[in-house]
């Protein structure tokens, strides 16, 4: 991964969406959680769409993570996600709200406890 990053890219990002950067729905951000809708993939998917669908098939991912795996800009992946959601291949869910997340102080205590063990 890191070796690839340092190298000049061979395929530019606009090839993923055919130059589109405006998603069909504007409700996704970097933390949107993507999960597979299940069911077989439609036959006519662009390679990048198929790759994203397969990637999410492996388990829920945030949009930013998916972008990192695909080595694509977030803006382009958003377009892909919108396409796939339109096709019913993906479910996109807003990120877990802050209120429902674990208490950071508790996590910090756990972390310091773990460090103390080591």
């Amino acid at each position: 991964m890191s070796g690839r990053r340092s190298e000049r890219r061979l395929v530019p990002a606009y090839m993923a969406t055919g130059g589109r950067a405006a998603p069909s729905r504007n409700t996704f951000d970097r933390l949107t959680l993507l999960s597979a809708a299940g069911g077989p993939l439609p036959g006519r998917l662009a390679p990048a769409q198929r790759r994203l669908a397969e990637l999410v098939n492996g388990g829920p991912l945030s949009l930013a993570e998916a972008a990192a795996y695909l080595v694509l800009p977030v803006s382009v992946v958003r377009v892909l996600v919108a396409d796939l959601v339109d096709l019913g291949v993906l479910h996109a869910r807003a990120p877990v709200p802050r209120a429902e997340q674990h208490d950071p102080r508790l996590l910090e205590r756990v972390l310091s406890g773990l460090r103390a063990i080591r």
């Binding site: 530019p12 990002a13 606009y14 969406t17 130059g19 589109r20 950067a21 405006a22 998603p23 504007n26 970097r30 800009p73 977030v74 803006s75 382009v76 958003r78």
Partner: peptide
């Protein structure tokens, strides 16, 4: 492209790239 994910800016960047 990797830094900015504003849709309009991203569209312009993709066009410039092409």
């Amino acid at each position: 492209q990797h830094r900015y994910d504003n849709a309009d800016l991203a569209a312009d960047l993709l066009e410039l790239d092409l």
